[in-house]
Design a protein around this nucleic acid. Sequence first.
DNA 1: TTTTCATATGAAAAATAGTTCATCTATTTA
DNA 2: TAAATAGATGAACTATTTTTCATATGAAAA
Lengths: 103, 103
Amino acid sequence: MDSCNKQAYRLFFSTLGNQSRLEILNALRNGKKNVTEICAAAKLEQSLVSHHLKELEYHGMIFREKNGKFSYFQLNKKTIQPLLQLIEDHMGEYCCKIARGER
Amino acid sequence: MDSCNKQAYRLFFSTLGNQSRLEILNALRNGKKNVTEICAAAKLEQSLVSHHLKELEYHGMIFREKNGKFSYFQLNKKTIQPLLQLIEDHMGEYCCKIARGER
DNA sequence: TTTTCATATGAAAAATAGTTCATCTATTTA
DNA sequence: TAAATAGATGAACTATTTTTCATATGAAAA
């Protein structure tokens, strides 16, 4: 973690540290979806979803593919999948109480 | 990523999505340190560091070990090291421009 | 047994991030 | 070509986080 990368680390993590963005990533687990489909799956409003999609794309978490009036998005599986696995393992050991909101 | 874990994911990521906390983790890369040593290494004020250490500990990122009037902290290497490697790889491909702050 | 050092803590202030709203553009359909 | 649909965007508003400040606690040293 050299100093010139600290900003990028911070951005990487804080991009993922948001409930709405996680819902969106979750909605994309089983493949490509357009904005309307993501809204429905994630139960989030269109404008909000568009803002977040832009952010997720900028940070390389998802890829965009335009098709006529539709924008299709898909997960960057190479990063996201092992990441989620890693967190899963971490949580198994340290975060049970956290998931339940205990202190 | 089942729904009952979403909150825990969010907390995991947002814990790491903060510059000061990353500085602290960075300061712990080469082994155990007490609060004063962390402050010096990370160039952060004591009170701020204490607040963040509490947060990092609660989320299982670091471990605390009290010794007299000193509190020693060390990285949870099992989680943090592979995590940083994973991000490193991700950034190599997608985030060069991000690290430089471009849009 | 007072003083000093190390750390913790709560509350206020400051900074940052997230959401909503109104509106705009582009594409497709009637 | 007018209306409808899909999505994007900027600005205002709201909420959350981070930092600071003043002070408390507890251990060790003088």
